[in-house]
Design a protein around this nucleic acid. Structure first.
Lengths: 320, 320
DNA sequence: GCCCGGACCCAAGAAACGCTTATGGCTCGC
DNA sequence: GCGAGCCATAAGCGTTTCTTGGGTCCGGGC
């Protein structure tokens, strides 16, 4: 039951004649006639009675017309839905993100996205970078917002591509009364004797690496990937730690002091998706929203250095 | 949104890969690949993500799959319904018939049809021959069972074809006590002085014609196309009349006598339909049932002369 | 570490489908 | 009776569509 012929048959029924259907379709009469003949052969039944002024549907023709109308309606619905998805007048996009971005950058991006495409259903999933990438690979998320500390290679599964979003400086967090809090910047080597609070597994590895470069092995006493917990431990004088600025933007314990450590390279933020998903409008729009949100944050902080990184990444993605 | 491509896409979704869809369809892989590419171009969106082990549907692809499934189901339903109609496992056939056949021949035919094709919906419409043909022309009936008196030309609208079903002798009806009822056969000329009861318009014309041939003009006092009324009038001695055997088979007033009139040619019964409707299984089956019912009636009466006419007509129709 | 197999894409050629042109039959209306 | 409208058939050609024969990428096994 060829559906193309079915739609031709629908025109025959509409106009009441083969010649009329041909006119409606912009074809010649024999073209429609042949379609009808093949359709009748497939059906094994006459579908119309040929009469002097045109044709009249047989019972089988009327039955077939009902099906043809249903098929045409469904095809139209499919085209409409595709158009809506292409115009972002619908659809879903799922972002997997790590906590500190999920409390700062990503909500801002989601807000931008909601403003630009009100009908788009944006959903957030929280996951640390490795798990976030897994979600994308497994198809349970469309985008992963991840970070990588300087010197760490982000394990990027094949088939995925990453767009740099910007950098996130890593800062030293001390108890307010700590001696180091009196200076503006702090040299890491001066903290060789401190007790340390570590973060997630990758952050701990980073901490050990930078301390090793500074010439000592950190005395890690506690660990938590929750930046509220880390700051609380520090506030109680149980150690010092490194936290990225996004985490400190998300939550800042008033009992801690924050200082820069010269030479500490920032972690990089990136957004990752399937290589081919770049052609999906929802993914493109979401990537752009993340980049724009990052640029807005940088501009709001009046920090041209950060702004450049985000801006350049943004324009690169926009042109792709 | 080409539906053929949609069905190919459905196979891609089913098998999870383009190559798998190609195997399922008995095609090569590039053929399916090209269909998918054109479908994605039409949709304006990627429908699948190409991954090492095959493809994964995007959100748009999943949406399209739902439509594709619906289209496929509707096409299958259409094919099924066409098949059912072709096998006479459904459908309707409407017979228009004149009263005396509607009380005798046609119910027998309908019963045959119901036995042979229990799912076929057979419907009867009563109409005198000219109106019955109009119903067929107007598409309100599929078949017309009509009669024509000898010498009358059945006005057959163009586009219709008629199949002879058999003949129906016209008999003389007299009051039981009438002098003519004493003889076996009756000469029409002996009834020149009688008062006559006429039937329908065409029957009245026939009466006047055969009386004219016999040399007199009938004194028509009453008229009714209802054979019960006619017999009642005759039974009450209000006149004599001619009635075809089918009418007398349908109803026989015990107070009347029936005699043959030698030389009175029988009326002919025929079944008429659109020329092209001969290819419609329901119409073919109905025509055959009418012919078979007529043959059964002839055989049941042990009247080979009648049986021959019906049989020959039957075999002619069967071979068409 | 390298090769092999599976899956996909692209380009070009061949087969097939589909529309057009040309012609004829039929019915209706002037 | 003849033209106009509708439909059918047959032949021709163009476009679509499938195949063939390349190539790339990724993952698994020796």
């Amino acid at each position: 039951m060829d559906s193309h012929r079915l739609l031709v048959f629908r025109q025959i029924a509409r106009t009441g004649s083969i010649a009329g259907a041909a006119r409606a379709l912009g074809w010649t009469q024999p073209a429609v006639s042949q379609h009808l003949r093949l359709l009748e052969r497939q059906a094994g039944l006459p579908l119309v009675l040929r009469r002097p002024r045109g044709v009249r549907l047989t019972e089988a023709g009327q039955a077939l017309l009902r099906h043809a109308d249903a098929v045409a309606a469904r095809l139209q619905a499919a085209a409409d839905e595709m158009s809506a998805l292409a115009q972002l007048e619908g659809g879903t996009v799922r972002l997997a993100t790590f906590p500190s971005a999920g409390a700062t950058l990503v909500p801002a991006a989601m807000s931008l996205l909601a403003t630009r495409h009100p009908a788009l259903d944006v959903r957030l999933l929280q996951a640390e970078p490795p798990e976030a990438l897994e979600l994308v690979v497994a198809g349970e998320a469309d985008l992963a917002v991840t970070f990588a500390h300087a010197g760490q290679r982000p394990a990027e599964p094949s088939g995925l591509v990453s767009v740099p979003v910007g950098t996130d400086p890593v800062r030293l967090v001390l108890p307010r009364g700590h001696a180091g809090a009196r200076a503006g910047d702090v040299d890491l080597r001066s903290l060789a004797a401190e007790r340390w609070i570590a973060g997630c597994a990758r952050c701990t590895a980073y901490l050990e690496e930078v301390c090793g470069t500074a010439g000592f092995a950190p005395d890690v006493r506690h660990g938590s990937d929750d930046y509220v917990v880390v700051q609380s431990l520090i506030a109680h004088g149980l150690g010092v730690g490194l936290l990225p600025r996004l985490a400190l933007d998300a939550f800042r314990d008033p009992r801690v002091a924050v200082r820069d450590v010269p030479g500490l390279r920032p972690r990089t933020i990136q957004v990752t998706h399937h290589r081919e998903a770049a052609r999906t409008p929802a993914v493109r729009a979401a990537v752009r929203a993340v980049l724009d949100a990052a640029a807005d944050r940088s501009a709001g902080r009046r920090d041209p250095g950060q702004g450049r990184a985000a801006d350049s990444a943004h324009s690169a993605a926009s042109s792709s």
